[in-house]
Design a binder for these strands. Structure first.
Lengths: 337, 337
DNA sequence: TTGTAGGCGTTATCAG
DNA sequence: CTGATAACGCCTACAA
């Protein structure tokens, strides 16, 4: 079934069918209905490969997600899809492995599918400016830290200020009287990862309040409950006097909480816990966990908006920094009270 | 940059470049290296639209996921991707809205992209045999219930026996002496959904043990902690003497647990809780929640295997039923003990 | 308002 | 071993 068949079957020319299908140019109502009938009857669907080939540009947007299992991304992905579809474009969700080079994957996709634009979600980009330039189509980095100093005019981004927000969380714990505060995050070797940024905020808060930074209170761990659990167990063995845990993600916080609770200690009675992200699970944990809640859906929406502004040429590269909010649910309490 | 340019730049014919790129036919080593050099130098990537157009069949596999936010799918998706890539095929992950008709979406994709095969994950398929036949390429239904009685030779599936597994969970609670057991699941209007199937198992267990089925103990709720929470609150108001909750997903179970714990009751002291699926979060909840654990990764792997067997014609449609295991972590206890 | 023809970048057939 | 050349299905001037 191709456009030629439809043309023959409905007794019109090929281009007329094309015009009907694309709502372009003028077609008489009679012809239009006639063609549509045949299209319906034979369940005809145009071949997008041929279309893309001809059009030198598909209207597809790609979303490159690093870590599809991250529950914080779930709602964001949904929102990106909603927003992209709202603009009449199909969305190609490409999940990239944690270790793999997503920008190369995207580079390939772009060339292959003639993408309209790309949104990168999650991960860290230790890519040179040149790589970015190679991409050569509009793209937005969402929730992403760039490792190298890159000319901000070559890319757009939607982020939060990790240093500042981690500072906020740590300061909160300090204001409650905590001084033995542990910090859990992922610290890969590359610099300027999310984990490293948040560590900076953690350290900054400690320093500003005259609390010496103790590396033995910091543990490297994956963004998962199981990893948070074992890391916290290690911490508790090393630091018998630790009174608070600041986890760089809610998933870690949940693992940390489990480690604490299953040791017979209480939250926040013995140890206060605060997470990061604002996923539903943290709210429904018992006790409900305090967290630094990121406006994920708003960030997703903004990402799509920026991307389409870039596509339509309505604006140049932009960098939007969203504020997160400290959500207090009672898993942190004043020390000694 | 197209194949023509590469041909010109390396001083050979177009088809030679094509042969080099596809490792097809015989090419002298000298020409091969010469061409590859140019390809590398200009970072040439073939246009897949043109390729697909010509090839009448791309090697792309599509994964249609209903409910990407379902944490139970996370690992399955990863495994599907791994397995598909292992076989040298790209995977297109298409997330479909909860309400939308995924088989039509797939139908479109198949026609558009000349897919090799499709895996459907999650949701309920109330589609006629005819729809299935229209698809016309190999496909596997994973974790999916078909509503209508469909000729089993027209599709493949990888599932668990929902009735049996729900029966298992309920029987377990009954064996612990519970009789006032509530059940939480999603009950859409269509028949034979996952929720309805598990309800059947629940009822079957009750009946076999001579416990009258009490509809007021059954609540309709979404597969999320928040929905599980509110549904459980409703249940607790209606049924003061309920002693156990069987939730059709771990996400619901977590919400249910929160409702119970935040009311000042204890688990399993006052109320026993058991979930379904076997997600990490249920294990790290406090208390750790019992569950019917599905072998998600194995199911994902089997799905891909079956799909490729179909594609290579090595076998005909198959239906594999996996066993789930009852994982006891202490959130259920003998009544009155 | 409608039809014809050329070309998008590949692959595959078929002579050299 | 290599190079023309004809499709693949569609869009879009351009001509009617």
């Amino acid at each position: 079934m191709n456009i030629k068949d439809i043309a023959r079957l409905s007794g019109v020319g090929i281009s007329t069918v094309s015009r009907v299908l694309n709502n372009t140019g003028f077609v008489s109502d009679a012809t239009r209905t006639k063609v549509m009938e045949v299209v319906k009857k034979y369940n005809y669907i145009p071949n997008s490969s041929a279309r893309n080939l001809k059009m030198t540009q598909s209207n597809t947007i790609a979303l490159m997600v690093k870590g599809i299992s991250n529950p914080f991304f779930s709602n964001m992905i949904k929102e990106v899809e909603r927003q992209v579809n709202l603009r009449g474009c199909p969305l190609l969700i490409q999940h990239v492995e944690d270790g793999s080079d997503e920008i190369n994957a995207a580079l390939q996709l772009v060339k292959e599918k003639n993408l309209y634009g790309v949104i990168f979600m999650g991960g860290t980009y230790d890519h040179s400016e040149e790589k970015f330039r190679q991409l050569n189509i509009p793209f937005v980095l969402t929730t992403i830290t760039t490792t190298q100093e890159v000319d901000p005019t070559v890319f757009s981004s939607v982020i939060i200020d990790d240093v500042q927000e981690a500072y906020k969380a740590t300061s909160y714990l300090i204001s409650l009287g905590h001084t033995k505060i542990s910090f859990l995050a992922r610290f890969p070797l590359v610099q300027h990862t999310t984990g490293n940024r948040r560590l900076l905020g953690y350290i900054k808060a400690l320093e500003e309040h005259g609390i010496p930074y103790d590396p033995s209170l910091v543990e490297d761990c994956e963004y998962s409950p199981s990893s948070g659990f074992t890391a916290t167990k290690r911490l508790m063995n090393k630091n018998k006097d630790m009174t608070a845990v600041f986890a760089a993600s809610d998933t870690i916080a949940i693992g940390a909480a489990k480690a604490i609770l299953s040791s017979g200690l209480s939250i926040p009675g013995d140890i206060s816990v605060i997470g990061f992200d604002g996923i539903e699970m943290a709210e429904y944990y018992h006790p409900s966990l305090d967290t630094i809640s990121q406006p994920g859906v708003d960030m997703a929406k903004a990402s799509v908006e920026i991307l389409f502004d870039l596509i339509t040429g309505q604006s140049t590269n932009k960098h939007v920094v969203f504020d997160s909010v400290l959500v207090k649910r009672g898993s942190c309490k004043k020390i000694g009270k």
